[in-house]
């Protein structure tokens, strides 16, 4: 069995310094107005008892990734380590991934999709993705998902003393997220779907409807192809009978 790798973001440690965003832009040669890491800030409470909830809008590396399922060109694939990789050179920019993603992460711009590419080369060399290695606040970790979950549990237990709703996000969602988040409050506060899902219709479409459609087309071709010689001979015969 392959090992699941993933990220862990402790949102309670983020200082919104944007180092990860810029480092990621460097790693992926993105121009200044394209980014794979966006941030969402949400205040709760009222002055002075206020909390600033921070989360990154970036690929969650779902185990059951609808973007991989829907991608018609194979630009989105699952690595052996279960991370979701994007090969922009195969991407047609159809934007299906952007529309199907329950987290609204991919962006279809400039005829391609923009989403975390999971620093494939670095990871395959055994290094950390660049957002993790650059995080100055230790808010990001990378490693075996099981290990990350363990450390997240510890951290959440500590946080619960101050934030009773503190929790891990991504343990179960979408078959388990490769981007685990430590939250101080309910996911909804962070603008995260509590129960994200890959619409069941996606599987029906890709696994049943499309193959059936193709089979019917095939059958029609076969039937007409096979009958053509007989039919046209019959027709010619009828004409000559006149």
């Amino acid at each position: 069995m392959t090992k699941q790798f993933g990220f862990l973001m402790d949102t309670s440690l983020c200082v919104e310094c944007q180092a990860c965003r810029v480092a990621c832009q460097m790693q992926n040669q993105l121009p200044h107005n394209r980014t794979l890491i966006r941030f969402r800030f949400q205040e709760t409470g009222s002055y002075p008892a206020v909390t600033n909830h921070i989360t990154r809008i970036t690929c969650m590396h779902c185990q059951l990734a609808p973007c991989v399922k829907i991608c018609p060109t194979g630009a989105l694939v699952k690595g052996e380590n279960t991370l979701t990789y994007l090969a922009p050179e195969r991407c047609s920019g159809c934007g299906y991934c952007a529309q199907i993603c329950p987290f609204k992460v991919p962006q279809a711009l400039d005829n391609r999709s923009y989403k975390c590419m999971a620093c494939r080369e670095l990871v395959e060399e055994g290094k950390e993705p660049v957002c993790v290695s650059t995080c100055i606040a230790n808010a990001l970790k990378f490693g075996e998902r099981a290990e990350l979950l363990k450390s997240a549990e510890k951290r959440v237990a500590a946080l619960q003393k101050t934030f009773p709703n503190a929790q891990i996000y991504g343990r179960e969602q979408m078959g388990g997220l490769g981007m685990l988040l430590i939250l101080r409050d309910d996911p909804a506060v962070y603008g995260l779907p509590v129960a994200p899902r890959a619409a069941g219709e996606l599987a029906f479409w890709k696994d049943s409807l499309q193959p059936t459609g193709f089979k019917l087309v095939g059958a029609a071709l076969l039937a007409t192809g096979a009958s053509y010689a007989i039919a046209s001979r019959n027709h010619r015969r009828e004409l000559s009978e006149e």
Partner: peptide, 28 residues
């Protein structure tokens, strides 16, 4: 594009597909 829910999007894609299959078979 970009403003459809997952279900709306999938519904549209599937209808589009079904219509296409029918048209292809009719054309054959």
């Amino acid at each position: 594009k970009g403003n459809l829910s997952q279900n709306e999007f999938l519904g549209m894609v599937m209808l589009h597909d079904i219509a296409m299959y029918i048209m292809v078979i009719l054309t054959i």
